[in-house]
């Protein structure tokens, strides 16, 4: 996916990372290294701590134990990621978290202008390019509530990209969307993953996306990394029983698949999120979006 030879300094290293919320231990000694430019999908049952991994990196939570190193900068228990680390990381949230009182355009230009001191005209030009990239240039002057969930999430992606981060974190970016709006967001993320050498971490329940976009898939359960590997390997020949059980419950929730209960099920083909998404479906989505506005 990413053919550039990776920078020898990893983007992020987690060493024996622990995180508790009160009595509740969410991460129990997590070890993980993310190479520079790597696209990593983190999957696992809810409560496995995958979102917490992202939130720790972003500096939204304090570390309870262990070390996290981001581009060679270390921080330890009791600390949050420092500002200059957070400056290099962008995040896309499950519930978008757009600023409701600003237009789409200002959502994107606000941080570059106020934080980075980019000239408003320049920021606007870049924002329009980003909006074009996520297919929403005609929505620049709309307010977030006038957009569908899928459109809001694409704006949120553009907003994060406007800060030109080295690492992008996606926290279940499609989990809050109506099913028919998921595809557009996944495609934007796929295009981004294929065209940029940013480091990207996706916490997701979209197995097809993980299978075909990620360089590596990490399966987490109960606060640790259970298994990590190339998507082909992890989805087709998982080593761990827990991974098998999880994949089975996600891919065949009703238990209808035939054969032995621990057999590995296929993940849908790449077409499901590819450019060849059936044209009439795409038309229906466009139609709906037009109607919604």
């Amino acid at each position: 996916m990413n053919n550039n030879s990776p920078n020898p300094t990893p983007a992020a290293i987690f060493r024996d990372v622990q995180k508790s919320f009160g009595e509740n231990k969410v991460l129990k000694g997590l070890d993980l290294t993310i190479a520079d430019g790597e696209k990593v999908a983190i999957i696992g049952p809810s409560g496995s701590g995958k979102t917490t991994v992202l939130r720790l990196l972003m500096g939204l939570e304090k570390l309870s134990g262990g070390h996290i190193e981001v581009f060679g900068k270390d921080y330890v228990a009791g600390a949050k990621a420092s500002r200059d680390v957070a400056d290099r990381i962008g995040m896309v949230f499950q519930h978008f978290n757009l600023f409701p009182h600003m237009t789409v355009l200002r959502n994107i230009t606000e941080a570059p202008v106020r934080v980075r001191g980019v000239k408003p005209a320049e920021a606007k030009k870049r924002a329009m390019n980003l909006l074009d990239q996520v297919g929403l240039s005609e929505k620049a002057d709309f307010y977030p509530r006038q957009l569908s969930g899928g459109q809001q999430q694409r704006v949120a992606i553009a907003r994060a990209l406007a800060m030109q981060p080295d690492i992008m974190l996606f926290d279940e970016p499609t989990s809050a969307l109506d099913p028919e709006l998921v595809g557009d967001v996944l495609k934007v993320m796929r295009d981004l993953a294929e065209s940029s050498n940013m480091t990207m971490l996706f916490v997701t329940h979209e197995m097809t996306f993980a299978r075909h976009v990620a360089d590596r898939v990490i399966f987490m359960d109960q606060g640790i990394v259970v298994e990590s590997g190339h998507p082909d390997e992890l989805f087709q020949a998982p080593h761990e029983q827990r991974t098998r059980n999880f994949l089975r419950s996600v891919l065949d929730p009703m238990g209808w698949a035939e054969g032995p209960k621990d057999a590995v099920l296929p993940v849908a083909p790449v077409d499901a999120i590819g450019p060849s998404i059936a044209p009439f479906i795409q038309d229906a989505v466009n139609e709906r979006n037009r109607a919604a506005n």
């Binding site: 972003m58 500096g59 939204l60 500002r83 957070a86 400056d87 990381i89 962008g90 995040m91 949230f93 519930h95 978290n97 757009l98 600023f99 606000e110 941080a111 106020r114 934080v115 907003r159 994060a160 800060m163």
Partner: peptide, 11 residues
């Protein structure tokens, strides 16, 4: 989420 988004944008 508004605070978190602000933080993620380095405000």
């Amino acid at each position: 989420g508004q605070w978190e988004a602000s933080h993620a944008l380095s405000f």
